[in-house]
């Protein structure tokens, strides 16, 4: 699906033909409409994944569980450690979701949306002279390369946190095969992670273009704009996932 958007993203009439502008009914560029349609479709994709997760919440026959304490040798489940009866300390499974750690990665991902906005603004205002006496910070703020790379790095940081989370879950005994929670959790967050990965690659491609020839002008603004739309969408989906899967017990 990332394919569809990527191809749509570049299949424009106007690209490289600044002098020949095609008539469009709305005055908008085709690619922008296509990306919105794509995002609409993606909403249904994540809606299906999230509903499945919620339907299967609490239906797993064996642990580990997201928010509850469990026992490797019995079917006992409890909300707190104290309530867990008759389980030797070696067999205790603690709640697997680590909300403080994931809150950090959530913060990083949400901040990347800010960086994305600044990247787009930097491309839009490129060519405007900086105010007199502009310092390091002003130059940074106006640098599309800086903000594109910053967005990509924050996305990559989120992915780093996710791989740490996945690995530690596997060490604690939760894999995609363990129980319904494992299957639906890894599939849902994995799908989101794949979307972030596609976004990071997209951002790095834009960064490479920016380094090579400099992103500038109306067509390039659109190029960054559609990537930004996608990136914000991926962020918004994470807000839904973080709230529904991590925060609500």
């Amino acid at each position: 699906m990332a394919t569809a958007v990527a191809t749509a993203g570049h299949d424009s009439h106007a690209e490289g033909h600044g002098e020949h502008v095609h008539y469009t009914s709305t005055g908008l560029e085709n690619r922008k409409i296509a990306v919105w349609a794509f995002i609409g479709s993606e909403c249904m994709l994540f809606a299906s994944l999230i509903s499945t997760y919620l339907i299967y919440k609490g239906r797993s026959r064996v642990g580990p569980w997201p928010h509850e304490w469990g026992c490797k040798t019995s079917a006992a489940v409890a909300k707190t450690r104290e309530l867990l009866q008759g389980c030797s300390p070696a067999d205790v499974m603690k709640p697997i979701l680590d909300i403080p750690v994931t809150s950090q990665s959530t913060f990083v991902l949400l901040m990347s949306s800010l960086a994305m906005v600044l990247a787009l603004a930097a491309v839009e205002t490129k060519g405007t002279p900086l105010p007199a006496g502009a310092g390091w910070w002003d130059r940074c703020l106006a640098s599309s390369k800086f903000w594109l790379m910053a967005t990509a790095v924050m996305g990559a940081t989120f992915l780093g946190y996710q791989s740490y989370e996945f690995t530690s879950f596997v060490h604690e005994g939760l894999t995609i095969k363990t129980n319904l929670f494992g299957s639906s959790f890894f599939t849902l967050t994995g799908f989101h992670g794949a979307h972030v990965t596609a976004g990071v690659l997209w951002l790095l491609t834009l960064f490479a273009i920016d380094v090579k020839r400099g992103l500038k002008g109306k067509t390039d603004v659109l190029l960054v704009d559609i990537c930004a739309l996608y990136w914000h969408f991926v962020d918004v989906v994470w807000i839904a996932i973080f709230t529904l899967i991590y925060l609500i017990q």
Binding site: T52, I55, Y56, R59, S60, R61, I176, K177, N179, L180, G182, S183, S184, T187
Partner: peptide, 12 residues
């Protein structure tokens, strides 16, 4: 080997 349709594992 996921369990989405595995009734024994509690699937719907």
């Amino acid at each position: 080997g996921t369990q989405f349709y595995e009734i024994a594992a509690g699937a719907d």
